[in-house]
Amino acid sequence: MLQIEELTKRYSGGTTALDSFSLELGTGVLGLLGPNGAGKTTLMSIIATVLRPTSGSIRWKGEDALARPDLIRRVLGYLPQDFGVYERLTATEFLCYLGRLKGLSGRGLRDGVAEMLDLVNLRPAASRPLAGFSGGMRQRVGIAQALLGNPEIVIVDEPTVGLDPEERVRFRNLLSELAHGRIVILSTHIVSDLEAVADRIAVIRQGRLVRIATPGELLSHAAGRVFRVVVDADRLAQVQKAVAVSSISRKADGVHVRFVAESPTIPGATAIEPTLEDAYLLTNLEAA
């Protein structure tokens, strides 16, 4: 069990990235959802012990993880949002380097690295310098190093960036399988990724936890609050000013506008089945 209590992070410029954030995590996938600058990456960096909080505590199996960061590091697999690689090294060498830092050695290290390269299907490119890797391949190297050593906590920040749609689906399946017996914290802007794999979703806004719920609970909350209306193109701007629009599509019969609201404020609007994206938009609207 990972317990986060009243975590706050203030940067020297005065920005509060996290504000008294509290959460308890057990096994399964927790999705973090929020706009840019909400504090998702800050939260993940603090849990990963790369950043120190201004105040608050993190406990891992009852022990203070801030005082002893190695408690978490020993069981952690972390894939940051933006990371570099050592371009002169091959994928194998890079993974071996990180494996050694994790405390792996000898046969265990070699077998572990080989296993990871197979897992992300990079064995054919294992001997190529990382300088020649595409963005997607580097992302897979990142995934491989995060899973090296069979971690109990996996933190992945925007993990599907650079992956093509098929690979995204496969990676989502990987996360689902990983979640058995592990804590997986996933941050993404792609709501469909969370819909597919998350057991719970935490909505973060301006450094605070706005809501934590299962996808089903979020969708139930949004039921009856999502509408669709067809308008002329010249009325679109007016509609956009009046309601929170979740999507716009131009069709032969006009502009189909999907929006969230407590009631159908636009004449001609009809209630429709909500998606998770609608539910997220509604949560943000209520929090604002």
Partner: peptide, 8 residues
């Protein structure tokens, strides 16, 4: 971020 999250 990768290196300084490692236990060693």
């Amino acid at each position: 971020s990768l290196v300084f999250a490692q236990p060693g």
